[in-house]
Design a protein around this nucleic acid. Structure first.
Length: 425
RNA sequence: GAGCCUGUAGCUCAACGGCAGAGCGCUACACUGUGGCUGUAGAUGUUGUGGGUUCGAAACCCAUCAGGCUCCCCA
């Protein structure tokens, strides 16, 4: 019967099948990161609340994070993001680290938000950053890492795109429209929201913010000008680098990408699935040259991005891009013929494991029919049986569960025989 | 913080005021040394929980819990 105690809201239980998906994502993340020479690292999962309160708004930390008092009375927070920890760790060992720094991480994060499609309260996030270089070439590299990941999971440029913009470019365009700096945050949110709102509503909302009709029209011109990047030296160099890196087909300039005004200073980018069925970014990031100094760290230019496991997981499942789930890591089952034969089965299993094979022994002498059915359902490839006849002749019955063929072989030949079958299936 | 929707067998769902059902899965047998495919038979329910309306409630009403979706937010 089901337990009355439910999992905490917004958490996910990882049954083997979901664990397989999580590990699949992790493997691809690691491969993409390491292909470009990034080092894996991690930080504590719980941090002092002050680490976040300094940078993020007090409100954000209190309302949108898991914070509690430990037994000593100190306030601690389950990490909602990684950058503050990164900053601290860089500052602590600044003199010992070899720059430029290329670091990546994949671990759990917690945010106290309303769970919905593509968002949970406990999730895994890939963070990858390059620190110590201020150059469009570095920006291009991070975008290339993202593209390499997308490609590796089967999301080709028709299925997913990376949209790029530049904050400095937008700032200068906003200046040209005479939008005062005090309105920048609101205008930025306005831009962010454009794809979600009906055009008429969006116009009304823009006027509500106090923009003049002329400014609204100007803004719309900017946001629909997909040639705007040519005015930016940074973006021109970025796109040239992206072409050289062989990922040009994944990347499109899009003036609607803002990512708030939080701390990005230059290039910003977000990857989306192109069908738009899920209106959430797969990943997002950009250049943040002032952040480290702003929060009391070393003054280091930086670029990076983050990707949660939830959105990408949904997309991979919807597109059927996951490899077949194999329930057990053991391809071989040794059946238990009856209670008198158990020692033979165990000995056989040991022999096979010593030869490096993953082997499961059925743990009770139930009907062979049931044991074979179990092997079938676990998608195992081979079932071995040692009954009285085989035992008397020092043999093993080897059944290939994929094609149904069964052969009785000498015990000393069984490892080689199994290897041959496994090489074929 | 706000709105909408959904909770029925292990799973997916039907029944929409009148006997709680189907498909899948499960168990047994056909097949006492062998899975998948097939056939036959069988088991499985506090209809999320608590209350109310009614001759009668899975259905209607109230409360509550849980989940989903959307808005807000998204480091």
């Amino acid at each position: 019967m089901a337990s009355k105690i439910q999992p905490v809201k917004g958490t996910r239980e990882f049954y083997p099948e979901q664990m397989f998906l999580r590990n699949f994502i992790y493997e691809k993340v690691r491969a993409a990161s390491q292909a470009f020479g990034y080092q894996e690292w991690d930080a504590p999962f719980i941090e002092p609340i002050d680490l976040y309160a300094a940078k993020s708004g007090e409100e954000l930390v209190k309302k949108q994070s898991f914070t509690f008092q430990d037994r000593g009375g100190d306030f601690v927070t389950l990490r909602p993001e990684l950058t503050p920890s990164l900053t601290r760790m860089i500052a602590a060992k600044q003199g010992e680290l070899t720059f430029p720094l290329r670091w990546w991480s994949f671990g759990p994060f917690w945010r106290y938000e309303q769970p919905q499609k593509g968002r949970s309260r406990e999730f895994f996030q890939w963070n990858i950053d390059m620190l110590g270089v201020d150059s469009p070439l570095a920006d291009a590299e991070l975008i290339a890492v993202a593209a390499a990941f997308l490609r590796s999971v089967g999301l080709n440029p028709l299925l997913a795109s990376i949209y790029v913009n530049n904050r400095r470019l937008m700032e200068s365009e906003f200046d040209a429209l005479g939008i005062i700096p005090e309105k920048r945050l609101e205008v930025s949110n306005l831009v962010d929201r454009r794809s979600k709102m009906e055009p008429a509503k969006w116009d009304a909302y823009a006027l509500e913010l106090g923009l003049t009709q002329k400014q609204v029209d100007g803004l719309k011109n900017i946001l629909s000008n997909f040639e705007l990047w040519k005015k930016s030296d940074e973006l021109t160099r970025l796109f040239a680098a992206l072409e050289a890196l062989g990922v040009k087909e994944y990347v499109k300039f899009n003036p609607n990408i803002m990512r708030g005004l939080l701390y990005y200073t230059g290039t910003v980018f977000e990857a989306y699935e192109t069908s738009g069925s899920l209106k959430r970014a797969i990943l997002g990031g950009g250049r943040y040259d002032n952040l480290l100094a702003d929060v009391g760290g070393p003054p280091l230019p930086a670029v990076g991005f983050a990707m949660g496991d939830v959105v990408i997981g949904i997309i991979l499942q919807e597109y059927g891009l996951l490899p077949e789930f194999i329930p057990t890591p053991a391809a071989v089952l040794v059946t238990l013929f009856d209670i008198t034969m158990w020692i033979k089965s165990f000995e056989l299993a040991v022999q096979l494991r010593n030869a490096g094979l993953n082997v499961m022994v059925y743990p009770e002498p139930v009907k062979l029919q049931k044991q074979f059915k179990f092997a079938d359902r676990m998608k195992m490839k081979i079932a071995l049986t040692v009954g009285p006849d085989e035992a008397a002749n020092d043999q093993v019955a080897v059944k290939n569960l994929v094609n149904g063929e069964q052969v009785t072989v000498k015990r000393e030949a069984v490892v080689e025989f199994i290897r041959k079958i496994l090489a074929r299936v």
